[in-house]
Design a protein around this nucleic acid. Structure first.
Lengths: 200, 200, 200, 200
DNA sequence: GATGAATGAGAATTCATTCAT
DNA sequence: TATGAATGAATTCTCATTCAT
């Protein structure tokens, strides 16, 4: 009974987060009313507050969920035998995410909000640091496996790969002709050149 | 008399734009009240509306001013005898801008707002397109001068250089340890490798 | 449940319209703040906007409600066997309304607002045209019943009876000694003379 | 010098009043900004306040000027040998005024404002009382000259003639098809019937 | 828990009036 | 006196949050 209730509660929270993600991505955090989120989640307006204490709490939960999901998927890749190959796969995954306008819109929104709100900033930076750390680990394993040929430090390399990823999300927003999936090969190539001095 | 008045008027607009830039960068567009801008510009609350019809108009003017300034500085560089060298100088300039937290905060904010507001989007994309076009022109001149060694198209190269620039602004926001000016050399190197297949 | 909700909603709208009528009549449309209306209706300030989208919408609804009420009461009279007698009764009703300072104040306010606001004008003129049409119909029936003795057209007669009615409202406003109910007999007599060439 | 200055000052006041009359008539008192009046009078925005202490003072001066003008023109008519004829001429004059949409718009506006503002009310009612008194005097002289055949008191007759005049202004506002000048004959006839029991 | 009506603080914008020049 | 920029109080409308049912 308790378990069922908890599960039902969790399902509602998930629905609300999904709805909020779409609203925030499409309209922006400020332009989204809590009633919009409820409507999209198919519930009545005040109901959100049974699941989250404030609108901001919804946003924070969303950031944490995204961080956890990213961490999970990166962890899977990190276990691969071929670290450099895993990195290239990761880049492809990122291109796929960038092509999802809900995801990229939300990413941009969160990144802007982190500037203004300390609670958002803490979680956003934690996610980012964790992602970079995973990249660094992957690069270290690739180096250990002799897959790299560069004198760039693993940290700088991880940083600039992250910059390329962020930059790609920015391109999606700024340039109507930019198609992330069509650019996946270019991205692979840039990263390969960076780490091995030559196109892969 | 007339000229003096116009000049005074323009000076006030400039003061307001400077104040707005700081407010928007630090607190974000939505969290900034028009009265905040006035206070920072040292004038009384309703006075902004003698210079701009709406809060949004202030934002749009800011985007246009930034676009014009960028265009001017890029045009100067573009006239150089050594196009590839000019590109590297441009990257250094960008690093300097990224180190200015007002500038980078504002850039991020505008990029997020462009997703939600068509008027912002139009001007933002125009600035971006103009910047990329300048890059393309510079790359074409560098290619003609035999300074490049890559089979990347000028368009793709310009796109990814823009992505690196955007990515750097994102790094500033996400990573407290990222120092744009310290990374200028790494950025030069990445771009050089991209365009010439080797570190410069 | 649904029906109850709808009824409750309608009751609130009615309360708000009643409150607005009093405010507009006493203080004028412009001097009335939406918060005044809410206070008089016994609700909190922003609540009006759950029932009407704008302050103007309250005014428009008020005009429409008045038109509908007038139409209803005129329709009842119009069914009488004695059309001329019904007209005299109608004049007495109008005198009673004119004696109600809320009603006459509102009528004057609306008439002045119709000059400046097209949406108000449309509804105001529709009410007026409908009232004059009812008068014309009544006069035609009276003529057919041989109750009239005048060569004034039904249209002109209706127009000038309407003018007398409007004029009476104006007298209430302009002349502190004018008592509409005491003047009912004079009005009956003027109209009788107009339509039958002699006092009734 | 002094006299010239005074005359110039008076001329400016007159220009401002003329401009205000048009603005108030066309847009209404509340929708008219003091800057609008200045612009129409061809002067700079704050300048009005050298001639009138407040916006309301402009309105009050306008009402007083209108009262004085009406009194003057009625006084001229009142001196005529044929008082009843003079009354009919007066009705024609009124029809002409009603046809002037600036004048009728202003009249309606003032009448509505009198409900809300005591200072306006005092002057408005004074004008009205003075006009009715003139009518009463004219009617008394007509009666003395044996021109009337009615048992209506001079006061009631004056009141209802005033009501017809007000009513006509209201008709102009409410009925787009009402043409005051075309209705002058009907008005003469109604008043004649009222005072003499027959069409003139 | 679910509903959706009610609350009330908040913010952009307007404009009469003031005042330095 | 003329100008027109500056002031700042005032008001409509929004929406996160609360709460009675």
């Amino acid at each position: 009974m308790r378990i069922v209730d908890e599960a039902a509660r969790e399902a509602k929270r998930t629905e609300l987060l999904d709805a909020a993600a779409r609203c925030f991505a499409e309209r922006g955090y400020h332009a989204t009313r809590t009633a919009d989120i409820c409507a999209l989640a198919g519930m009545s307006s005040g109901n959100l507050f049974h699941y989250f204490p404030t609108k901001q709490a919804v946003l924070l939960a969303l950031i944490e969920r995204d961080g956890a999901e990213t961490a999970t998927s990166v962890t899977e890749l990190a276990a691969a035998d071929d670290p450099f190959g895993a990195l290239l796969v990761l880049l492809d995954d990122v291109c796929r995410l960038a092509a999802d306008s809900t995801y990229s819109g939300l990413a941009l929104e969160i990144s802007a909000l982190a500037h203004r709100d300390d609670d958002v900033a803490v979680r956003f930076k934690a996610n980012d640091a964790s992602f970079r750390q995973s990249l660094e680990d992957l690069l270290a394993r690739a180096a250990a496996a002799g897959q790299l040929d560069t004198d760039l430090s693993a940290q700088d390399a991880a940083t600039w790969i992250a910059a390329l990823v962020d930059g790609m999300f920015a391109r999606v927003a700024a340039d109507p002709d930019f198609r992330p999936e069509a650019q996946a090969a270019v991205l692979r190539r840039i990263v390969s050149q960076l780490l091995r001095g030559a196109a892969s």
